[in-house]
């Protein structure tokens, strides 16, 4: 029932976006216009930060000024990009396996009632284990290579995928299930033709959370033991008291996270285009 209500609301939203002349470029322009307060605020913070550091003569290894961070960023460009390349690869691979695992767990729980009821509490229990604490164990088991980082990302990031997809699979209108059953459709066919498509918007929001978790997982994995990557670089630089480099690497991690996030969001708009959006043009 709530699902139906949601579609009704979505319908209204589509009605709003039906206004004439809402092209993509106009949408982008309005997005920039909408975001100018954020940009202005960011600029103000940076200026205040720079001014405070200079006024109070804070040493660069305690808190570097933004200008110092940008200088380091420029000076160690290749080093930072190499590290970002490695961490980015870990994030993508880890995210991929998180998505697969999360989707598989959700499908199993939704399809097999009895097993699902047994599995679900265990998945929740597993989620309450502090995953960061598992990092040293994964290093112990899988060595210093890619494998422990991927494993860590998967245990951190599969959960939002599984939970959101499951919510999508289960929020189906009971009348629709009745309709399918009335013409002789079985559980698997209902799952395939109705529940899975219905769950895709939910899956996409789970994936958006998972991609940000994946970035965290990769950095934590590198902290626990690595010889390359942005996480490794942050840790190494902090032991050298090279705080500007720490900040520069942190900035790269954030940029990486934001870029990946918007890639997933772009995919969402493309693949679940039937969910009407307020800001998007009508058809």
């Amino acid at each position: 029932m709530s699902g139906q209500a949601a579609t009704d609301e979505a319908g209204n939203a589509a009605g709003v976006s039906e206004g004439p002349g809402r092209s993509l470029s106009a949408g982008l322009a309005s997005a920039a216009a909408d975001n100018w307060p954020t940009l202005a605020l960011l600029a103000a913070v940076l200026v205040a930060w720079e001014a405070l550091i200079r006024l109070l003569q804070v040493s660069a290894f305690v808190v570097p000024a933004p200008s110092a961070v940008f200088r380091t960023l420029a000076a160690k460009q290749t080093q930072l990009l190499d590290a970002a390349w490695i961490t980015g690869g870990e994030v993508l691979l880890g995210f991929f396996f998180s998505a697969i695992t999360g989707i598989a767990v959700a499908l199993v729980i939704a399809r097999f009632d009895r097993f699902g009821r047994a599995l679900y509490p265990l998945v929740v229990l597993f989620q309450t284990v502090p995953k960061v604490a598992l990092a040293p164990i994964f290093i112990l088991w899988f060595g210093y290579d890619l494998a422990p980082k991927i494993m860590l990302i998967v245990v951190i990031a599969f959960f939002p995928v599984a939970l959101d997809m499951l919510a999508g699979l289960q929020s189906i209108d009971p009348s629709l299930v009745a309709l399918m059953r009335s013409v002789g459709a079985g559980r698997t066919e209902i799952l395939r033709r109705v529940q899975i498509p219905h769950s895709l918007p939910h899956l996409m929001s789970g994936l958006k959370i998972a991609i940000t978790f994946s970035v965290i997982g990769a950095v934590v994995g590198e902290f626990a033991g690595a010889s390359a990557g942005l996480g490794y670089m942050i840790q190494f630089a902090s032991t050298q008291l090279d705080t500007p480099l720490v900040f520069a690497a942190l900035l790269e991690v954030s940029v990486l996270g934001v870029v990946f996030f918007y890639v997933v969001e772009l995919a969402e708009r493309r693949f679940v285009s039937w969910v009407p959006r307020y800001e998007r043009g009508h058809r």
Partner: peptide, 19 residues
């Protein structure tokens, strides 16, 4: 009868597939 498509159902909500 339902399996032989002799019964057509309509509910209060249209229950259409939004995609």
């Amino acid at each position: 009868a339902s399996a032989r498509r002799l019964i057509g159902l309509v509910f209060q909500d249209a229950t259409l597939l939004p995609w």
